[in-house]
Design a protein around this nucleic acid. Structure first.
Lengths: 202, 202
DNA sequence: GAATTTCACAGACTATAGTCTGTAATTTAT
DNA sequence: ATAAATTACAGACTATAGTCTGTGAAATTC
């Protein structure tokens, strides 16, 4: 069923708010943009803003959710013949490049900050669930074909790998732009995985 | 030189504020305590509060910094005959027990949140921290005596190990009390270190 | 198609972290 | 000892995220 007139208008309002907000955020940085400014630029109101978003953070959180599309696209275009180890490394690299170039450090910082506010909808844990599933499929496969050790369960290993990613992203937000996100994440994941390989290669 | 009368009074005021604040935080949680409430209970004022602290967060941050005393005490009571691997594992375990039992999840959550606010005094990301120095000394020793591989520098390894700690603490703050901080941190550090050992043992 | 209900929105209002200015007590200078 | 300077503090003020209430247009009910 298509949208009613009222729903169409509401959607347009929401889109105007998002467009104005993201534009302002990119120009001035999240912390230097006020909600009043956003509603003024988008010709809306506080009332409208908080109908569509529960907080100022949610604008960024909504943008952050788009990463699920990236994950889907990634799995579709992944060569079958890669080892599980290589798949996890490539996923990490592609993901970090995406986060750095498409979303940016200010968004990640904001998402990682807001995730620690109590009673906030758990976006980070939710979107990370998609990531968790993908990583888990690689880990499971790797244990199944004897590439990885089995002294930890596939769930436990997956948790550790995604924790490496969160830890690296947190450090990126913490140390700032001079931190090489792609390089650091590769180094970290390579190291943690090397302890799990059955075959020693260096 | 000892404190002047004015400095003595100022110190007393600061201590009254800290005592009142920590008491209120532990009873109601950081987010449900206002600065107005703190200054009322401590019989001081906003002016006094912001002379002694740059933000509400800084009360917790100051408490958090006490961990350096814990680290110093730890190194003093550490048996010499342990391997570097065991030292790092024990440090992690003791540290996490300290954080869990003496500081608590609300404090860690607050510190990890506030560290991401721009222009905030950088304690977590300060690589001169006692924690970095201690871990680095163990790593250096371990590389020196042939226990650890040398394909990464001691600084890089130290950074990865402390990143594991930060990642685990972030996850604790994120997932809450049901997350077993001590167990999870041991699992994580054991795994990352196993990839660095020259001698394979399982 | 008139009456009722819903809801997207406007904008006034509230809560609270943090700032600013004046002051009195202490410290320093002369 | 007196004058000048400093500073810890009090409390009014500001900035801003988020809430609350009223309204008119759209949707639904009869």
């Amino acid at each position: 069923m298509s949208l009613s007139l009222r729903q169409q208008k509401a959607l347009q309002t929401k889109q105007r708010i998002v467009a104005a907000a993201l534009d302002l955020f990119s120009k001035k940085g999240f912390d230097h943009v006020t909600v009043d400014e956003i509603v003024q630029v988008s010709n809306t109101s506080k009332g409208a803003f908080y109908v569509h978003f529960n907080s100022k953070y949610e604008i960024f959180l909504e943008k952050f959710k788009e990463i699920d599309e990236f994950y889907e696209n990634f799995t579709e275009t992944l060569p079958k013949e890669m080892s599980s180890y290589e798949k996890i490394l490539l996923l990490t690299k592609s993901q970090m490049i995406y986060l750095k170039d498409c979303l940016g450090i200010d968004l990640i910082r904001t998402v990682y900050m807001s995730a620690l506010i109590p009673n906030q909808p758990k976006f980070l844990s939710n979107t990370d669930r998609t990531l968790f599933k993908i990583v888990h499929s690689f880990v499971y496969e790797g244990q199944d074909n004897g590439e990885f050790k089995k002294y930890l369960s596939s769930q436990e290993i997956t948790m550790l790998i995604t924790r490496c990613m969160r830890g690296t992203l947190y450090d990126w937000a913490l140390f700032g732009e001079e931190f090489d996100l792609v390089e650091e994440s590769q180094k970290f994941i390579r190291t943690i995985l090397s302890g799990m390989l059955t075959k020693v290669d260096n």
